[in-house]
Amino acid sequence: MSHEAASTQGAGREEDTAAPEAARPVPFRGGGFTHRRLGPVAPIVFLAIIALWEAGSRAGIISPIALPAPSEALGALGDLVTTGMLWKHLGASIYRLGLGWVLGSLVGISVGLMVGLFSLARAGLLPLVSALFPIPKIALLPLFIIWFGIGEGSKVATILFGTFFPTVIATYGGVDNVDRNLIRMGQSFGLSWLSIVRKIIIPGAMPAILSGFRISASIAIVLLVAAEMIGAETGIGAYILMAGALFALDQLIAGVALLSMLGLAIAWLIGRAERALLSWRA
């Protein structure tokens, strides 16, 4: 029956493209479930919270004993700059963080590559890594103080160990995920073992290694503060501890803000490294 209807309508050709009377648009059901880039939202949220906080403090809703106003914390930060203590604390912290994280990452990548490449290393080291990774490294700090001294050694060692384990896990996971066909291709063209590792496996594992960096850097900051709270005179952790002991809450907030900025700076640096090293992905 529908065939007949079609053939009778077919006689009037012009009518084919003209919309019949009851025509209505197809209801749209797509869209959603994607993200748009909303650049200014983050700073607006950030500033709004600080403004609310400041207003609350001035109006007396937030007691200065419970939480100092942001302007007071800014004042404490200003004091740090004018007395020159900022660079002393920040310098000491960055030195420990940099040294511990770089050494931990280097050793972690080497061990991770070995676990990824050699069955013996995997069988021997992986259970060890699994056993030691969950230990809070800060619990070992007294041990590290005995081994490496109360000075810089024990703090760097804490950060080094904290960085080492997640880096090992990220690296060997990255090596495992390298496309086997690419390795087979390398072998089929007679590439040497070293060339396959250097030109195929390491670049292939790079995305995983870099996302491991993000995690290990955050762990390193946490451990830095913890280590500086035990037996240190300088460093952001020591500054926060001192402020807490004196109930100088404005200084405490200033110290926490410094840590947050340090974290942001590191995340930005890793983002830059990703863009430089992984430009082939996009």
Binding site: G190, L191, K199, I200, P203, W280
Partner: peptide
């Protein structure tokens, strides 16, 4: 070999992919 999935290194350019098999 010529592979079904091409087996090109995504981080190397066209010239770099050819270069790979000559470098050793």
């Amino acid at each position: 070999y010529i592979f079904q999935d091409f087996a090109l290194l995504p981080w190397r350019t066209v010239a770099g992919n050819v270069s790979l098999v000559l470098e050793d």
